[in-house]
Structures are given as C-alpha cells and as structure tokens.
C-alpha cells in the first residue's frame, strides 16, 4: 500500500505580488519497504512535495492518497495522516524544546494519547532503532553533539511509529561519520518495512542508496526511475543544479568503450572490468 501523489500542483502566496508556483502537476509514489529520493536544485519544489505527503500542505489541484484512502484536509483526517507519515524537517534538532531526551522523544506519541507502558515501549523502540545510547535518555538534548542531536530528532519522529518516514536533507551539516551512520540507520528503517523518502540536492547520495529517484526542476518532474535509469537520463539531458558524480561519468566512459559495467557500481567492479578489457586487447603499450 503506497502513498500516491497524483498530478499535484501548488503555489505559495496565492493572490499576492509574491505568488510563486512551487509544483506543477507532479506525480509521486512511495511503497512501504522502499527508499525513494527526491532530488532537485533549491527551489525545485522538493521540500514542498515533502510537506504534501503528511498533509501539512494541501494541493491546489490533484490529490494525495495514503494507503488507498484519499487524504482530505480537515483536522481529524490530517492528524491521522501525520501520524502515519513521519516528517523530519531540515536541521530537525532546532525543534527541541524539552529538558530531557526522553521528554523530547515522548512528545510525538503522547500527542496521540499514548501513555504509560505503551509510551515507554515507543521510546525504547525508537532509541534502539536509531542507535542512540539509552544512557543519554535523561540528559539535556541541547548538550549533545551534532550527530547525537540529529539522531534524537529522528528518533522523536520514529517514536510515533509511522509507516513512512519523509526526511528533508537529513545529512545536512553532519560530518562524514555522522552521514555514514545516518545512511545505515535509514537502510535499516527501510528494511524494517517503512517507506523512506529522502529529499536532497545531493545526486551522489541519491544514486548510491535509494531504490528509486524522482528528479524535479522548477516544480516539474524531469525523470523518475531506478538510479541507473535516472543517471543515464541526466548524463544525456543535464538538469539544473545536479552534478553527475565523477565516478558515474567514468563508468559511462567505460561503457562507451564496450565494457559491461553498470553506471552505478563499486570502484572494484570498474577496476576489474578495466583489467579484463586491457587483458583482451593488449595493443596500447605503457
């Protein structure tokens, strides 16, 4: 059962001089157990799309349905949608308000009336899923390191046990170790059966980790599909603000020479292919 956004359009500041169209008839699907990346330049509409998935925004035209039921604005239904689709904003640690990590993580589930033992179970589950040290539960969230704060912020959304997790630039501001841990965590979340949507301007990370990619440019869909397919398309038709990772360009050059390597592949794979190729035609001396 997927989230389906069907042909949605949206504009900000309608009716004022600052009116700006953010989405133009974009369609999007994410299944449970799947990792979809939405990539595009700043202002391409990718964050606006993310905010439609949990009904923070309602489309001007088109529709969003969650697991087959069309989501309509109205406080009852949109609250249900918000629990099923957890949305993690960019720099989510800036929403902290509680004095302890525990209270911060309890916030979301308790807003839906979860209490007592069930609440504790929610918190424990979120803490272990996000790889957070349980000893930190009673500490002050503001006193943690950057990477730990990001985990607490994501755990605080996971704690409401959503079926989908939508993250806006989740790796922004993290160092290399922090990014690796986060990517690992998100793969775990996906493997546990949640639908993961990652909004990012980093084509490289989208190509390496996601199952499918949607590319937006100026509010419109440019291409969508598997990383391999999307990479092929962007090499042939450059998209504003998206840089083809050098290794993908390298793989493309190898393919043009007739080597059988996928566009998205490991370094070892390419080196092996080059070795075989060189072995076969020993004509170019050193």
């Amino acid at each position: 059962m997927p989230i389906v956004a069907d042909n949605i359009s949206y504009a900000y500041n309608v009716g004022t001089s600052a009116e700006s169209v953010a989405l133009r008839g974009v369609s999007f699907t994410v299944e449970r157990g799947e990792w979809v990346s939405v990539v595009g330049h700043t202002g391409s509409g990718k964050s606006t799309l993310a905010q439609h998935l949990n009904l923070l925004l309602t489309p001007r035209s088109g529709s969003v349905s969650i697991d087959g039921a069309e989501a309509k604005p109205g406080s009852g239904e949109s609250r249900v949608a918000r629990r099923r689709v957890g949305l993690v904003f960019q720099y989510p640690e800036t929403q902290f308000f509680a004095e302890t990590v525990r209270a911060e993580i309890e916030f979301a589930p308790s807003n839906w009336g979860v209490s007592g033992g069930a609440l504790k179970a929610c918190v424990d589950e979120a803490v272990s899923a996000s790889g957070l040290d349980p000893a930190l539960l009673e500490s002050n969230p503001f006193a943690l390191s950057g990477g730990q704060r990001r985990r607490v912020a994501i755990a605080s959304v996971i704690a409401m046990r959503p079926d989908y997790l939508v993250l806006d630039e989740p790796t922004a501001g993290l160092d290399a170790a922090g990014i690796r841990e986060l990517i690992q965590f998100l793969s775990g979340v996906r493997d546990a059966g949640l639908g993961v949507v990652q909004v990012t301007h980093d084509l490289r990370s989208a190509l390496s980790y996601s199952d499918r990619i949607l590319v937006l440019e100026n509010g419109s869909r440019v291409v969508s599909g598997t990383p391999e397919f999307v990479a092929r398309h962007i090499i042939d038709n450059p998209v504003r603000g998206l840089v083809i990772p050098p290794v993908v360009r390298f793989a493309d050059a190898l393919r043009k020479k007739g080597m059988n390597v996928p566009l998205i592949c490991e370094v070892d794979e390419m080196v092996r292919a080059i070795g075989i190729y060189k072995e076969r035609n020993k004509k170019c001396g050193s």
Partner: peptide, 13 residues
C-alpha cells in the same frame, strides 16, 4: 574517518 570521494578511491585503486 573521512568520507572518501569515490573518484579518489578509484584513483587509488
């Protein structure tokens, strides 16, 4: 523990 750009890993290999 730096993030290694894949093209650098390729170069190295």
């Amino acid at each position: 523990s730096f993030e290694e750009p894949p093209e650098m890993a390729l170069h190295h290999a």
